[in-house]
């Protein structure tokens, strides 16, 4: 990270010019903890063993309770437990230097982040699904989804017209209740679809958990974040 100065006029006085940032601040006891944005819920359960094997202290995450801000007692890490959709927001603003989030979230909302590692855990698919039985969908189907952007660009790329119906959850209900003809949703095993009498028509894309890093933080806290990227990458390949 950039060198600090105790002088308020820093940057204008003569200091020895030094090329490079490596090592600076990494072992400094006064270094603030690394803030890590994590998605609450199912994905976190899939992530936790991998983070642990990458050397992140995760005991504090396994402790029961509803605390959303969890500081590792040794002071190296601060975890923020967030709604998955909000992970990129916290990291983009630099409130968290690092985050872990499903690629579906990144695809849907657009972002300006580094995504150095695909962890390969929490594997799911975004699929187009429709009623398992019954008539084929009309030429301009009504499509219910919470992935509004992914759905629009997928249909647009195929030149296929449709009516988009934006929902925020329980998307499977839409065809059952007659609100929509088809759904675009994320599936892991497909069991929820089956129980709601839906079948996968096409896979739109595969998604899994991704490590994201704030653009400035990667450079400013290189000595801290680069080893973390390397160990997360190593852990995700074993």
């Amino acid at each position: 990270m950039a060198r600090r100065s105790s002088d308020s006029e820093a940057g204008r006085r003569s200091r020895p010019l030094r090329r490079g940032t490596e090592g600076a601040g990494a072992t400094d006891a006064s270094t603030p903890p690394l803030s890590v944005a994590l998605p609450k819920g199912r994905l976190l359960e899939a992530l936790e063993p991998l983070l642990r094997s990458a050397g992140l202290p995760t005991a504090i995450l396994r402790q029961p309770g509803r605390a959303l801000l969890r500081d590792d007692p040794r002071g190296g890490y601060r975890y923020l437990l967030l709604k998955p959709d909000d992970v990129p927001t916290y990291v983009e603003h630099g409130t968290c230097e690092v985050g872990f989030v499903g690629r579906d979230v990144l695809m849907e909302r657009g972002h300006d982040l580094y995504c150095p590692v695909d962890l390969g855990v929490g594997r799911c698919r975004i699929v187009l699904a429709g009623p398992a039985h019954g008539r084929p969908p009309p030429a301009q189907p009504r499509v219910a989804t919470k992935y509004v952007n992914v759905t629009q660009s997928w249909f647009a790329a195929r030149g296929q017209p449709m009516h988009l119906i934006a929902l925020s959850g329980s998307v499977e209900l839409a065809p059952l209740s007659g609100l929509a003809d088809l759904v675009v949703d994320i599936v892991e095993t497909g069991e929820t679809l089956r129980q709601n009498h839906l079948a996968v028509l096409e896979t739109i894309c595969d998604v899994s958990a991704v490590m994201v890093v704030n653009r400035s933080a990667l450079k400013l806290r290189r000595a801290r974040i680069l080893p973390l990227i390397r160990s997360v990458r190593a852990a995700s390949r074993t």
Binding site: M1, A2, R4, S5, D7, A10, G11, R12, K219, L220
Partner: peptide
Amino acid sequence: AARAVARAGLGSFLVE
């Protein structure tokens, strides 16, 4: 640029 941001009060920064 570095001189300007320093004069504006920015104490420490990295030029990439």
